[in-house]
Amino acid sequence: MDPLIVFLQAVVSGISIGCIYALVALGFVLIYKATEVVNFAQGELMMVGAFFAYTLVDLGGVPFVPGVLLALLATAAFGVILNHLLLRPLIGSPAFTIVLATVAVSTLLRAVVAMIPGWGVETHRLSNPLAGQVVPIGKLVVSAEHLMVIAVTVVLVGALYLFFSLARVGVALQATSQNQLAAGYSGIDIRRMFGLIWGISAAVAALAGVLLAPAAFVHVNMGYIGLKAFPAAVLGGFGSLPGAVVGGLIIGVVEELAGLYAPEGVKNVAAYVVLLAVLMVRPQGLFGISKRVRV
């Protein structure tokens, strides 16, 4: 096959997987910006969301679109509850404690999902209306699933952007993440905002899970993909939402190209190699601003 076509093919599927990383990284950055909790369980939220969708659509027989929407709502509710039970009591704890807590949550979620009858440790297929379809673009043959992933991500990122800049609640959330004290004084209910942000973040993660399912199936360990979303977020500069998206895309594309041109095994660690390289050259990430200490 034409090397250029092979290259472009890899770029398209890289962008598609990059979109998934971007979505998980987005949820991660949203929570971090608003609550300063680094949620190492973000990948597991995604996994739970995918299982919800699988249960509704494939086990419950709900049609695909309403089924997925219901699953997003359910995951959002799950995120809110998780925040309420576990993470709110930890606000203000040292970073070490929070890392351990979210790591523990992720381990616990995996273990519990593995024990649920019907979920377990088997691999499940989430049926989806686009399965197997392809769209030819010139000489390129692109799978409809990849295009859907990209389209949904674009729409979602656009919607989030509008929400945070226009909607009243969105602006309140922005304010909360920039200065909690000031936001509190202007009458914003900080606790409700934290719950809301966890809800949104969990729903975004669930959507990533649904989008990932055709490529990787629904599986108890699918949340490990979250471990590639962290490099994406760091690459983008951690506190930055556009940075998370760009970081995710870069990592997705680099990974696919590494799979194509680099020796075996490089693809698995490409994300981490890129991350370490960026830290050496531009430690604040691509979009980050180095913070000034106040004393």
Binding site: V38, A95, V99, F230, L276, P283
Partner: peptide, 27 residues
């Protein structure tokens, strides 16, 4: 590189390094 920044970066950089080391051992 990682210690120049806040602690979070060390956590993630060590995570990344750990995956790389395992992969190197495998390959």
């Amino acid at each position: 590189p990682a210690l120049r920044l806040s602690g979070l970066y060390l956590a993630i950089a060590t995570l990344a390094a750990s995956f790389i080391v395992t992969e190197v051992i495998v390959r």
